[in-house]
Lab assay of single mutants.
Amino acid sequence: AVSDRLIGRKGVVMEAISPQNSALVKVDGETWRATSGTVLDVGEEVSVKAIEGVKLVVEKLE
């Protein structure tokens, strides 16, 4: 799938994300809905860990 190429890519949080709420991230110039197990604020850099349906699963870039 096209989205599989995004695993391992870096992105930027466009809307705050919490474990209860998905929000938008920008990866390679494209906007995607994403979820995370932690709270992520706007502007934080993230890494794509997986794809669940049409959502990216991201975590904060260390």
Rank of each mutant, 00 (worst) to 15 (best):
A1L: 11
A1V: 12
A1I: 12
A1H: 11
A1N: 11
A1D: 10
V2H: 10
V2A: 12
V2L: 13
V2P: 15
V2F: 10
V2Q: 09
V2W: 10
V2T: 10
V2K: 09
S3N: 10
S3R: 10
S3G: 10
D4W: 00
D4M: 07
D4I: 11
D4P: 10
R5A: 09
R5S: 09
R5H: 10
R5F: 07
R5E: 07
L6R: 04
L6G: 02
L6P: 03
L6E: 02
I7Y: 00
I7V: 09
I7D: 03
I7L: 08
I7P: 03
I7F: 00
I7T: 04
I7M: 05
G8Y: 00
G8N: 05
G8I: 00
G8R: 00
G8F: 00
G8S: 03
G8H: 04
G8C: 06
G8E: 03
G8A: 03
G8W: 00
R9H: 07
R9Q: 09
R9V: 05
R9G: 04
R9F: 05
K10S: 08
K10I: 14
K10D: 04
K10P: 06
G11Y: 00
G11Q: 01
G11V: 03
G11N: 01
V12P: 02
V12S: 04
V12C: 10
V12H: 06
V12L: 07
V12I: 13
V13N: 02
V13M: 10
V13A: 04
V13T: 05
V13F: 01
V13E: 02
M14K: 04
M14H: 04
M14F: 05
M14C: 10
M14Y: 05
M14V: 14
M14T: 08
M14N: 02
M14A: 06
M14S: 05
M14I: 14
E15A: 10
E15T: 08
E15V: 09
E15H: 06
E15Y: 05
E15R: 06
E15G: 07
E15C: 13
A16G: 08
A16F: 14
A16K: 13
A16C: 12
A16Q: 10
A16Y: 13
A16P: 11
A16W: 15
A16E: 06
I17K: 13
S18R: 07
S18I: 07
S18D: 09
S18P: 08
S18F: 10
P19C: 13
P19V: 09
P19E: 13
P19R: 09
P19S: 12
P19K: 10
Q20W: 09
Q20N: 13
Q20M: 11
Q20K: 10
Q20D: 13
N21W: 09
N21P: 04
N21Y: 11
N21F: 11
N21M: 10
S22R: 06
S22M: 11
S22D: 15
S22Y: 10
S22K: 06
S22A: 11
S22W: 08
S22C: 15
S22H: 12
A23M: 15
A23V: 14
A23H: 07
A23E: 04
A23T: 08
A23C: 13
A23S: 08
L24Y: 08
L24D: 04
L24N: 05
L24C: 08
L24F: 08
L24K: 06
L24G: 04
L24E: 04
V25F: 00
V25M: 00
V25A: 01
V25Q: 01
V25R: 00
K26A: 09
K26D: 08
K26R: 11
K26I: 13
K26P: 03
K26M: 14
K26L: 14
K26W: 14
K26N: 10
V27F: 04
V27K: 02
V27T: 00
V27H: 02
V27R: 00
V27L: 06
D28Y: 01
D28C: 14
D28W: 02
D28N: 07
D28H: 04
D28V: 01
D28A: 07
D28S: 05
G29M: 03
G29A: 03
G29P: 00
G29D: 11
G29H: 04
G29V: 00
E30L: 07
E30C: 13
E30M: 07
T31H: 12
T31E: 13
T31N: 13
T31K: 07
T31S: 11
T31D: 13
T31I: 15
W32Y: 15
W32I: 10
W32S: 09
W32G: 08
W32Q: 09
R33W: 15
R33D: 14
R33M: 15
R33L: 15
R33G: 13
A34D: 08
A34F: 04
A34R: 00
A34P: 08
A34Q: 04
A34S: 07
T35M: 09
T35E: 11
T35L: 09
T35N: 06
T35D: 08
T35W: 06
S36C: 14
S36M: 05
S36H: 04
S36V: 05
S36K: 00
S36W: 03
S36G: 05
S36R: 00
S36Y: 05
S36N: 04
G37H: 13
G37F: 11
G37D: 15
G37L: 13
G37M: 13
G37P: 10
T38S: 13
T38C: 13
T38Q: 14
T38W: 07
T38P: 05
T38Y: 08
T38E: 13
V39H: 13
V39R: 11
V39A: 13
V39C: 13
V39G: 08
V39Y: 14
V39E: 11
V39M: 12
L40S: 02
L40H: 03
L40R: 00
L40D: 03
L40W: 02
L40I: 09
L40E: 02
L40Q: 02
D41W: 13
D41Q: 14
D41G: 11
D41S: 14
D41F: 14
D41Y: 14
D41N: 14
V42R: 05
V42Y: 05
V42I: 10
V42D: 03
V42C: 06
V42W: 04
G43A: 03
G43T: 01
G43L: 04
G43R: 01
G43W: 04
G43Y: 04
G43M: 03
E44W: 09
E44A: 10
E44M: 14
E44H: 06
E44S: 09
E45G: 06
E45P: 07
E45F: 12
E45H: 12
E45A: 10
E45M: 13
E45S: 09
E45I: 14
V46M: 01
V46E: 01
V46R: 00
V46A: 01
V46N: 01
V46L: 01
V46S: 00
S47M: 15
S47F: 15
S47H: 12
S47V: 15
S47Q: 14
S47I: 15
V48P: 02
V48I: 10
V48D: 01
V48T: 01
V48C: 00
K49E: 05
K49C: 10
K49Y: 04
K49G: 03
K49V: 15
K49P: 01
K49S: 07
K49M: 10
A50C: 08
A50Y: 07
A50L: 06
I51V: 11
I51M: 06
I51F: 05
I51R: 06
I51W: 05
I51K: 04
I51H: 04
I51T: 05
I51S: 02
E52G: 04
E52W: 09
E52K: 08
G53E: 04
G53I: 02
G53F: 03
G53M: 02
G53W: 00
G53Y: 00
G53H: 03
V54D: 15
V54M: 14
V54T: 14
V54L: 14
V54N: 15
V54S: 14
V54Y: 11
V54F: 13
K55D: 09
K55A: 11
K55H: 14
K55S: 13
K55L: 15
L56P: 02
L56E: 04
L56N: 02
L56T: 03
L56I: 09
L56K: 03
V57E: 05
V57A: 03
V58G: 01
V58K: 00
V58Q: 01
V58L: 02
V58D: 02
E59M: 04
E59F: 00
E59P: 00
E59T: 07
E59D: 07
E59V: 10
E59N: 04
E59C: 06
E59A: 09
K60V: 07
K60D: 03
K60Q: 06
K60T: 07
K60M: 05
K60F: 04
L61P: 05
L61F: 10
L61S: 08
L61E: 06
L61C: 09
L61Y: 09
L61W: 12
L61G: 05
L61M: 09
E62Q: 12
E62R: 11
E62D: 12
E62M: 11
E62G: 12
E62A: 12
E62W: 09
